[in-house]
Nucleic acid binder design. Structure first.
Length: 198
DNA sequence: CCCTGATTCGC
DNA sequence: GCGAATCAGG
């Protein structure tokens, strides 16, 4: 595969959207995340920030401490036939319809000001974290039960008895079953919820 | 272990 | 220019 204009376009778009190199590589197909990263650098759009915020670019200074002397006895894997991708056995066929963008209309998350207690632990959590979760739930992928994998956030959102129910679906925080935001509300330190009035 | 991007360097 | 191998984190 070569970097055609269209492919570069997708690359730029996705990278701009904050997609990870591996995701982009998966989307494009025929390339590895390394290739994507390499291209990103060559295109000179490595840092996605640019915002004059506190996040300063890399303090590169001078880099050269790399070990130039690489023995590399004989680790040559020869031409490793990748093509593997042992991902989940999705409905892989030949349909060029990878990611449904979910063009659904904006369903209101909270139908009404009803009790709505099913939320696992949205009781006494720092308002900040709570707010963050709310944000996340708006940008969540809203996947269904069957779309859950070991790598998708399994945080339930909404009421299972209604149509307004889905799973977060964002990338999980490694070992955890939830994404970062939901991990923070799901795994409250005891100290925090210690003296629950009851 | 999973993942991320960054860099190097032979091709 | 390309990207695998590697490095350096989280």
């Amino acid at each position: 595969m070569s970097w055609t204009d269209e492919r570069v376009d997708v690359l730029k778009k996705m990278w701009g959207e904050g997609q990870s190199a591996s995701q982009i590589a998966k989307e494009l197909g025929g390339v590895t995340r390394n290739a994507v990263i390499g291209k990103v650098h060559r295109l000179g759009l490595s840092n996605r920030a640019g915002s004059g915020g506190g996040k300063s670019a890399a303090p590169k200074a001078d880099a050269k401490p790399k070990a130039p002397a690489k023995p590399k006895a004989a680790p040559k894997k020869a031409a490793a036939p990748r093509e593997d991708e042992i991902q989940e056995p999705k409905t892989e066929s030949a349909s060029p319809a990878p990611q449904p963008k979910v063009p659904h209309a904006r369903r209101q998350i909270i139908p009404a000001g009803q009790p709505l207690p099913p939320q696992p632990s949205a009781n006494e959590i720092s308002p900040e974290v709570l707010a963050k979760v709310n944000e996340v739930e708006k940008t969540a992928k809203k996947i269904t039960l069957m779309e859950l994998t070991e790598k998708t956030c399994k945080w339930p959102v909404g009421d299972p008895a209604t149509e307004q129910f889905w799973f977060c679906g964002l990338a999980v925080q490694q070992g955890k079953p939830y994404c970062e935001a939901h991990v923070s509300v799901a795994f409250q330190p005891m100290s925090s919820r210690r003296d629950r009035r009851r």
